[in-house]
Nucleic acid binder design. Structure first.
Length: 579
DNA sequence: GCCGTTTTCGGCCCGACTGTTTTCAGTCG
C-alpha cells in the first residue's frame, strides 16, 4: 500500500526530534517540523502527486532537499538521513521529548549522564534520586520529572469538547466573581471548537493588580498549581484537566484573544506577515516600532495586516489566511440554518421517547422536520426493527403526521451495513421510506480495503441515502475504522448520496478535514443529532461547530433545505435506478 | 532547511515562568 502523508509527516517529526537531540541548528529542525505540519494537513496524498509527476517543492515549506526526502520515503519507506539518525540513538529515546518539562537539552544531558533512554527508566531514576545528581537539575526538577514521567506512562489524554463544559461553566463563574474582571473568555482549541481539547486556555480582562490569578489558584476544584505569576497561572483541576489562564488589560483584549485562541501555526503565520510589513504582533497589541497601532479588538489586529477577521474555527493555518487575503473566506453555516434533522431514534429501538415526544422536541428545537431512523433487525442489542415492525412504524408516522402542526416526521431507518456490504433489510421494504441511513456497527476491524469495499457496495444499493458516522470512532472507546475516505467521498459524488456528520459528543464523525474534502468534491453533508431522546437535539450545535471547522456553508449541508426541496434531493437517492 | 516589495545571504515569532547557572538557559504555549 502506498505511503500516506501522515506517515511521511511522522518521519519528518522523528528526524526533527533526533536532530534536536544532536543539538542541530534550531531552524533546520523547525524546517522539518513545518514540512511535517504541512504534510499532515495537506488534502492530497503525495503518493498521488508522485503518480501525476507533480513537484513536491510546490508545497509551502518544502524545498529541493525535503522534496527529495519525500520522494525517497515514497520509494522505499524511509530515507538515509532518518536511518542514520536512528542508528546513532537508542530506539524510543524521542519519547522522552514528549514528557512535559523535558526538552532536547535536558534529554541529551540525562542520556549522557545517566544513560536514560525511555520514560520508564526516567521514572525509576527520578524515584531513586539520581536525577538531582545531574548538573542543572535539582530536587524540585526531579519531583516534577517523576510526576510527568508517570503521567506520560498513563498516556496524556485529550478531552471531548462537550465533556469539558461543566469545568468551563464553573471556571467562568469563579473568575467573573473577581472584582475588576470585565471579560472571561475560554480561548484555545475550545474556542476553535476542535472535537477534543488538551487543556483550557482562559483569557481574563482585568486591571494589573486584580486578584484573578489568586482566585484561580485557590479555586476549590484545583488540585495542583503548576505555575503562578503576575499575569499567568497554570493549574490542574481535580478531574485532571489542565487550565492555563492569562490576565490582560482591556486595551490588549483583541490581540490577546487572537494569540491565545491560536492555533499556534495560525498566529505564527500572522506574525510573519506582520514582520514583512515592519510590524510586530504580540499578545499586547500590534506595534510599528514602539507605536501601538491596534489590539483592542480581534478585528483591529487582522485589519492592521490587511485581513478581514477570520472565524476561530478556521484558524488552523490550513489556507484560511490565503483565503482571507483573496476575500474568499467561506460564509460558515450556523445552527439557525438547519431546518431539520435526519437521524433520530425512538423507543421502538434503543431510543427513550415515543414518536410523538420526539416530534414535539424537534418542534421545540426550531426544526421543521425530523427523520425517524430506528435501528434495523441485526442490531439486536438495540431492539432493531424487522420488516414487520418497520411497517407498523411507517403507518404510525403517517397517522401522526396528519395530526402534527409545524413539524413533519420523515420515515427512515438506520439500517445496518452487513460485513459483506449488503443492507440488513430487503430493497422492497426500504423503498417505502423517505430516506435510508446506512451504518456500520459490526466487524469494525476489517482491513482498509475490505472496509472500504463494504461501504462502497452498500452505497450502490438502490435506496441508500446517507452514510452514518462514517469513521465509526467513539472517543475513549475506539479509534476510527481503517477506510479510504477519499474513495468513499468520490463514490458518494458519483452515486448521488450523502455523508453524515454525526453530532453525538463522543462521535463528531465526519471529521473536520473530511467535511472539507466532501465539500470540495461536491458531496452534501447531513448534520445529524443521532438523538435517542428529545434533549439530545441540542447536540446539533456541536455538529455545526465541526462543520464550520470543515469550511461548510449552509449550501453544503443537506438539512438546511426546506422540506419540499429536501424531499426532492432524497427522492433522487431512493429511486431504484438512481446513480 | 527554507525563503525573498527587507535579503540568493542572513534572517527565521514572541514573551512568561521556573529553577538554580547568581545573570540566564530551558521549556512552554
Amino acid at each position: 500500500m502506498s505511503i500516506r502523508n501522515t506517515e511521511i509527516a511522522a518521519m519528518f517529526e522523528e528526524i526533527a526530534d533526533l536532530l534536536e537531540l544532536q543539538q542541530a541548528n534550531a531552524f533546520r529542525v523547525r524546517a522539518y517540523r513545518n514540512a511535517a505540519r504541512t504534510l499532515a494537513a495537506w488534502p492530497e496524498e503525495m503518493a498521488d502527486w508522485a503518480a501525476q509527476g507533480r513537484d513536491f517543492d510546490d508545497l509551502p515549506g518544502v524545498g529541493k532537499d525535503l522534496a527529495g526526502k519525500i520522494a525517497e520515503i515514497l520509494a522505499r519507506g524511509s530515507c538515509d538521513q532518518l536511518d542514520r539518525l536512528r542508528a546513532s540513538f537508542p530506539r524510543g529515546i524521542t519519547d522522552l521529548l514528549h514528557i512535559s518539562g523535558l526538552g532536547p537539552r535536558r534529554v541529551h544531558a540525562l542520556y549522557h549522564e545517566l544513560g536514560i533512554r525511555s520514560p520508564a527508566q526516567l521514572l525509576s531514576a527520578a524515584r531513586e534520586g539520581r536525577i538531582r545528581t545531574v548538573p542543572g537539575f535539582g530536587a524540585v526538577s526531579e519531583r516534577r520529572i517523576a510526576k510527568a514521567a508517570a503521567d506520560h506512562l498513563e498516556r496524556a489524554k485529550r478531552w471531548p469538547l462537550a465533556r469539558v463544559t461543566p469545568s468551563v461553566d464553573a471556571l467562568l463563574a469563579c473568575l467573573h466573581a473577581v472584582p475588576g474582571v470585565s471579560e472571561v473568555v475560554v480561548a484555545g482549541s475550545f474556542r476553535r471548537r476542535r472535537d477534543t481539547v488538551g487543556d483550557l486556555d482562559i483569557l481574563v480582562v482585568a486591571p494589573a493588580d486584580s486578584a484573578a490569578v489568586r482566585q484561580l489558584c485557590e479555586f476549590d476544584q484545583v488540585e495542583q498549581v503548576l505555575a503562578q505569576g503576575s499575569t499567568r497561572a497554570s493549574v490542574v483541576l481535580k478531574n485532571g484537566l489542565q487550565v492555563d489562564m492569562r490576565v490582560v488589560r482591556a486595551a490588549s483584549f483583541g490581540s490577546a484573544l487572537v494569540y491565545f485562541t491560536g492555533s499556534r501555526a495560525h498566529t505564527i503565520t500572522l506574525r510573519r506577515i506582520a514582520q514583512a510589513q515592519k510590524l510586530k504582533i504580540n499578545e499586547y497589541g500590534v506595534y510599528r516600532g514602539r507605536i501601538r497601532i491596534a489590539g483592542d479588538t480581534e478585528a483591529s489586529v487582522y485589519a492592521s495586516i490587511g485581513l478581514p477577521c477570520i472565524p476561530p474555527e478556521l484558524r488552523e493555518d490550513h489556507g484560511e489566511i490565503e483565503a482571507a487575503r483573496r476575500k474568499a473566506l467561506p460564509r460558515l453555516i450556523e445552527r439557525a440554518d438547519l431546518c431539520g434533522d435526519l437521524h433520530a431514534h425512538t423507543d421502538a429501538s434503543d431510543g427513550r421517547e415515543s414518536l410523538q415526544q420526539m416530534a414535539q422536541a424537534a418542534r421545540a428545537a426550531g426544526l421543521k422536520y425530523l427523520a425517524i431512523t430506528d435501528h434495523s433487525r441485526s442490531l439486536t442489542v438495540a431492539h432493531g426493527l424487522d420488516a414487520r415492525r418497520l411497517g407498523v412504524q411507517i403507518d404510525a408516522i403517517d397517522r401522526l403526521n396528519e395530526k402534527l402542526k409545524d413539524i413533519v416526521l420523515l420515515k427512515g431507518i438506520e439500517v445496518d451495513i452487513l460485513p459483506d456490504g449488503r443492507l440488513d433489510l430487503p430493497d422492497a421494504v426500504l423503498a417505502r421510506l423517505d430516506l435510508v441511513v446506512g451504518a456500520v456497527h459490526s466487524s469494525l476491524d476489517l482491513s482498509r480495503e475490505k472496509q472500504t469495499a463494504r461501504i462502497l457496495h452498500a452505497m450502490d444499493r438502490p435506496n441508500f441515502s446517507i452514510l452514518a458516522h462514517p469513521n465509526g470512532r467513539l472517543f475513549g472507546t475506539r479509534g476510527p475504522c481503517a477506510l479510504d475516505m477519499e474513495r468513499i467521498i468520490r463514490h458518494a459524488r458519483e452515486r448521488g448520496c450523502f455523508l453524515e456528520l454525526n453530532s453525538q459528543p463522543d462521535r463528531l464523525d465526519l471529521f473536520d478535514l473530511q467535511c472539507r474534502q466532501a465539500r470540495d468534491a461536491g458531496v452534501a453533508i447531513a448534520i445529524s443529532s443521532d438523538a435517542h431522546q428529545g434533549t439530545d437535539l441540542r447536540w446539533l450545535a456541536l455538529g455545526v461547530d465541526q462543520a464550520r471547522r470543515g469550511w461548510l456553508e449552509a449550501g453544503d449541508v443537506l438539512n438546511t433545505l426546506p422540506l419540499q426541496r429536501l424531499r426532492k434531493r432524497l427522492a433522487a437517492t431512493m429511486s431504484p435506478m438512481s446513480g
